[in-house]
Structure formats: C-alpha cells, structure tokens
C-alpha cells in the first residue's frame, strides 16, 4: 500500500534527522515508489528510471546529515530526482535511445487504467483517448513545463513544493504550469 505524504510514518520521521539517518530503509520503502514513478513518467524508460531512483536515494543517504528540514522529505527527494532526471535527459546517448524507442513502440499508458464498470464502453474509449492525448501532449512539452506539469498532476505537489523541488520561483512555476495546461488543453481539442 502506498502511503500519502502526510501519513503517520512521515509524521513520525520528519521531525527527527537522527531518525532519517537511523531508519533510512523505512524512508526508501515509503518514497521509492513516488521517486520511481516520477522518474519513469519523466524519462519513459524503465532502466533509466530505476537508475535515477537508485542514484536519488544514494545521494540522499550521503546528504542526509545536511537535510535542513525546511521542506518535506518528499520535496527534498524530488529535488534530487529532478536534477538527476535533468542530467539524464541531457545525456546525448539517452536522447538517442529515447528517440529510437519512442518511434518504435509508443507506450499505451491509457491501457493501464482499470476500466470503470460504471462507464459505457464508448465513454471509456473516449476517456482513454483523452488520457492518451494528455500523455502525448506532456511528452511534447519543454523540459521545465513537463517537470512542473508532472509534479503537479501526477505527484499532487502544490506550487510551493514544486518551486522548492525545481529551484524556480513560485510565479515561474505558475507560468510554466499555465503554459503546459494551454498545450494540454489544445491537444484535448479545447481552445487555448
């Protein structure tokens, strides 16, 4: 079961840096799925996402003493992940393989959603189309817009958390988010 950011475990861990150092495994268990998911949806590559996730926790482990607790644990980990993902995206070899994989085998992310029995097959198909449209629109967003969009709409982070994780000002985050939303809405068939 995935725990929410305000779960009992996080509340128990957050106030004590010593706990962070002492029970790092618990942190990994709690946040690994989130970091992995963000890496996977950002990179769309399983191996690269696993690599980034491992690097993220390795760096967090080495930097745990310096964690100032001026943000939540998830936000801090996401900050590390955002930097690692940025490095990975700029890696020319990764760019080559990503281009190759995107052209050969598109990901059917909409197909992974469990069908809602309350919807008619037509309504479900329409919804799948819309999910696929958002997925495609997100892929075409510039890097920063995509990062902000995914942190907001996949990871449910608020503007302040996103600002901390990305190192942007809150207003800049909002601007990127609005632009991303415009692109997504256009892809969905609305008017920007």
């Amino acid at each position: 079961m995935e725990l929410s950011a305000t779960s009992e475990l996080e509340r128990a861990i957050r106030p004590d840096v010593a706990a962070l150092a002492g029970d790092f495994e618990a942190l990994v268990r709690l946040y690994r799925p989130k970091v992995f998911r963000f890496a996977l949806v950002s990179l769309r590559d399983l191996d690269a996402a696993e690599s980034v996730t491992q690097d993220c926790f390795l760096r967090a482990y080495h930097a745990r003493v310096g964690f100032r607790q001026d943000c939540g644990m998830q936000t801090w980990l996401m900050q590390i992940a955002v930097n690692l993902i940025r490095d990975q995206i700029r890696n020319r070899r990764f760019q080559f393989w990503r281009r190759a994989s995107l052209t050969s085998e598109p990901v059917d992310v909409a197909g992974h959603r469990i069908a809602d029995g309350a919807r008619s097959p037509e309504a479900q198909a329409l919804l799948n189309e819309r999910v696929a449209a958002v997925w495609e629109a997100a892929a075409k967003l510039p890097e920063r817009q995509r990062t902000v969009f995914l942190l907001r709409f996949v990871e449910d982070m608020d503007l302040l958390e996103i600002a901390y994780a990305t190192g942007m000002k809150e207003g800049t985050v909002k601007t990127h988010l609005f632009r991303a939303m415009r692109a997504v809405r256009t892809r969905l068939g609305g008017t920007a």
Partner: peptide, 17 residues
C-alpha cells in the same frame, strides 16, 4: 472535462508505473 482527463491521466500513469 479537463479535470476528468487530468484525473484519469494521473490514475493511468500511476497504474502504468
């Protein structure tokens, strides 16, 4: 529609992940 699409997108991405 926009809310529903984004909500479903979140669900689909989480299931896929």
């Amino acid at each position: 529609n926009l809310r529903e699409a984004l909500g479903e997108f979140r669900g689909a991405v989480r299931s896929w992940s």
